[in-house]
Amino acid sequence: MKFAYYPGCSAKGSSADYEKSTQAVCAALGIHLEELPGWNCCGSTPAHAVDTELSAALCARNLDIAAREQAETVLTPCPSCLSNLRHAAKRMENPQFRARVDELLDTPAAAHFPEVTSVMQGIARVYDANAIAAQVKKSLKGVRLAAYYGCLMSRPPEVMDFGDPENPTLMESLLSACGAEMVDFPLKTACCGASFGIPERVMTARNSGRILELATQLGVDAVVVACPLCQMNLDLRQKQAAKEADAFFRMPVLYFTQMMGLAFGIAPEHLGLEKLRVSADELLRKIDGAQAGEGDR
C-alpha cells in the first residue's frame, strides 16, 4: 500500500523520534510513504493566527504538489499540519477565497486536491484490529496506557473527521490490538497549552500539569500521544509542569508509533526511544518481563 507523505517540520527537528518510529512501523506493515517533493511548512499556528489567507497559501502549495504528483491520499503524522491542510482545502472550495489565495501563489493551485488524513487513520484504513494483532511479536499485555490526542486531532469535527470530537477512540483500538490495557482518560482531548511555552510558560505548565497529574493518579505506565508539540510539552517540559502543579511526575510520554513499534518487536533504537526526556526503561522492562513470564508458562 502506497501513500503520499507530508512529514511536517517537526519531523525534521524536535520530533525526529516520531518520524523514525512512523517509518519503522509503516515499513513493518508494508505501508510505503512517499515524501512530497519540495514540501514547505504549513505555517502552523503562527500563520493562521496572523492571517487565514496566508495560512491557506502555505498549505495550498503543498496540496498543489500532491495533486501534481497524482497522489490519492496524503498522510501526515502531525495533527497541526493535518488541521491546517484540511482547513485550507475546505476553504479553497469557496471561489472568492480561492482567488485571494491564488494571488499569493506562483501559479494558481490545482482545481482538486487529494484527501489528507493522519498516519493513524491511514494505518487503520489498511489494517483492522485483527490484522494489527497478527503483527504483534511482543505483546503489551499488562501495560497500562493513557491515550492523549490533544485538542486538534478531532476538532472541529466537520473538518477533522476523527470520530467523537471529545472522545476519539482510534488510538485505543490500535494499542489494545497490541495487547495494552487502555484506561479511560477524560482529558484525552484537553489542550496542553500549545506553543505558548515560549511566550507564556504558565499556559503550558498549568495545562500540561493537569494532564500529567491525572495520568499519574490513574497509575498508567505511559501517556501515548500523536502530536509532536503535545509530546514536547508533556515530556521536555514535564519539570516545568511539575513545578507549577507543586507535584512530582515521572511519566514517560511516547508516540503511538513508538508503542506499536515495541509491540511489533522493533528495537528501541530504531524507534528513537533514546530521545525521550523521561526514560521509558521501566516500561521496556515491563514489556520484556511479560514476555519472559509468558515463556515460563
Binding site: G13, C41, T45, P46
Partner: peptide, 18 residues
C-alpha cells in the same frame, strides 16, 4: 513577536527550525 519569529524562519528556509 513569537509568531513573527516563527514565520521569519519559514520565509528564510521554507521550513521552521526551532
Amino acid at each position: 513577536k513569537f509568531w513573527f519569529s516563527f514565520l521569519d524562519t519559514v520565509r528564510a528556509f521554507g521550513r521552521t527550525y526551532e
